[in-house]
Design a binder for these strands. Structure first.
Lengths: 350, 350
DNA sequence: TTCAAAACTCAAAACGTTTTAAATCGAAGG
DNA sequence: CCTTCGATTTAAAACGTTTTGAGTTTTGAA
């Protein structure tokens, strides 16, 4: 049914070899011939048979990705956002994405299963954990992969990540410069690498300012509005010590909860409380939920997709993994949720 | 690296043909030979090269699916639920799922793009619309597909669907039998085929009971808690006529909103108001959100996945599409949100 | 002992591509 | 006029499997 190289070669009286070379842009084929070949190929609607290509080249042009679902079977927005951008970016580079859904507690199982099907060139991973077992598995097997994020400071594989330590350091520095001394931190889950980096940046910036933070003012949980609401309520009505004058949030979702809690408690933002969040650029979260623009560190997830796809392609073409490591810096965007420390808020915690 | 048929045949002094047949269970190979072959294959860890298999069989073993995202980049739970079940069910049948994300207004575009990559054997479609353009496209091109749901009563392609007309008819019949006369219907979006079928079943059952429903008591919107809440609030405080004594909901999400609205209005369920919903068996929605068990028509989305995968495989193996049409019936499960019509509620609407 | 039928096995072709090594051609150089 | 070189093009092998059509044994009856 579909046109093959043989069809084209027969029609032109050329050999399949020449036709193949012409279409693949080899230099040794006469330009006139190339034009003729391309014309016939277009007319016949020739599409190379990827299975045959794969058989001879040993590559399939397909990469795998595993969807980790929440317990309630929803994929979080961040995953879907990446997925949307990635299928587009990969598609533009002639790579297809095979998806599987993780139903196991062990994240390596779906990876192994999918790989053993024998059809994939590599994987795209996201949401790295500290000591991510997927990294260990893939590296031990020599399976190519690209990570969105990086699981440790010494990651020796291709990745696209943002400078998470800097994200929280930027937030802290900005707040400290405005006189804030009691800064709380609503972080992501502790086992996520990004949260560990954020924590590290937070701690370092606070230390530079000579400030200490009690344990109860640094929290870890999966980002959600409820988490922000509950944590902020607890922080702002704390009996353990003075309430924070500023809260750094790992995501805008959390910040939304914080703002709601503050409103309910009659605490004015930014007069009484400053809020800084990290913004992944998810479409809805910012626009719909917020009347006041947040002060954020911003790095849209979408921007990661093209570099990720490019790294993947380069990796499969044999590039050195060491050259495929990108760290982007998040923008700092002043909104209306940060202000000078309120009167009486200068006292430090410890 | 990996063992091939040739390796096995060389080791045993057999031809690759015999080895191939032995491993594939052909009847004409000697049982003793088969045992020997299998032993060596196991020892060598032989895994058939799928690419080579596919080249010769002309099939790729991959089917495509398009994720339609909401405006906020979240995939709805129903899609993810199907995706999760489907990747498992297809994987068990040696079929892989290639995913693309729909970023277009025209649903045919991503389908066409993906197909023209030339790597897919077929598609799995979900959420059919009335006069679904995807059906027209795929049928005109002769591309195999299986639908979750069906876009019209005369669908002549493979599908797995539930009897949606019966779903709402069952709900209405049950309520009518309990004396209800004023039954409202919070349906899904009108252009979805399932919603049209539900509406048809609702209308038919109401007509059989000799009842009429004013336009304002039948609503269409994407299922969500907010929709249920808003619509119920409007219905129960209606100035247009007597409020309904029962509400049929297209999804449990909607019902959750209805229950909240009723509670806020001081309306007791089920004493003052009966609520019936259709339950897709999504993990969270029922368990977390509800204290009182809903009366539901129930058909877990998960149950659709294995039949869908089986239909797909059968279709690709050349089965007649007409034999691959399954219509399942939803269970009716009495909960605690339905009761006899309240006193004074017997009056009809029109 | 022979022979046909059954049982089993094999060599080779096919799938559609890439790639290696060799062949062809025309023109330039001697 | 012969050689050589560069520019093109080609035939053929290779990837690993399935499958076709043709052997080659074995079996059982004549």
């Amino acid at each position: 049914m579909a046109a093959t190289l043989k069809d084209i070669s027969a029609e032109l009286g050329l050999s399949v070899a020449t036709v193949s070379r012409a279409l693949n842009g080899f230099p040794e084929v006469n330009e006139k011939t190339r034009v003729r070949v391309r014309a016939v190929a277009d007319r016949l609607g020739y599409q190379p048979n990827r299975v045959a290509q794969r058989l001879v080249t040993g590559r399939s042009g397909m990469v795998g990705m595993i969807a980790r679902l929440n317990a309630d079977m929803t994929a979080d927005q961040t995953f879907m956002e990446i997925l949307a951008g990635l299928t587009a970016a990969l598609g533009a580079r002639d790579v297809d994405l095979v998806l599987n859904v993780d139903q196991h507690s062990d994240p390596v199982v779906p990876l192994r299963k999918l790989y053993e099907r024998g059809i994939l060139d590599g994987f795209i991973l996201n949401a790295p954990l500290i000591d991510d077992p997927r990294v260990a598995y893939l590296q031990s097997k020599g399976i190519p992969f690209v990570m969105h994020g990086k699981h440790s400071a010494t990651a020796d594989y291709p990745y696209y990540a943002i400078d998470n330590a800097r994200v929280s350091a930027d937030a802290v520095d900005y707040l400290v410069a405005r006189g804030h001394r009691r800064i709380a931190f609503l972080n992501g889950e502790a086992h996520h690498a990004f949260a560990a980096e954020r924590r590290q940046g937070f701690d370092a910036a606070m230390a530079r300012a000579g400030l200490k933070v009690p344990d109860w003012a640094i929290r870890n949980a999966p980002p959600s509005v409820d988490y922000g609401f509950d944590a902020a309520t607890a922080l702002l009505t704390a009996r353990d010590g003075a309430p924070p004058t500023a809260i750094v949030c790992a995501s805008t979702l959390i910040a939304v909860g914080v703002l709601r809690a503050a409103q309910l408690l009659g605490i004015e933002v930014p007069q009484d409380l400053s809020v800084v969040a990290h913004d992944d650029g998810l479409p809805q979260v910012v626009s719909d939920e917020l009347e006041t623009p947040l002060t954020v560190t911003r790095s849209p997830l979408r921007e990661a997709c093209v570099p990720l796809a490019e790294h993947m392609v380069a990796l499969l073409e044999g590039a050195e993994p060491a050259g495929l490591q990108t760290v982007a810096r998040a923008d700092f965007i002043k909104g209306k949720t940060t202000a000078e420390v309120p009167n009486g808020g200068e006292e430090t915690w410890l």
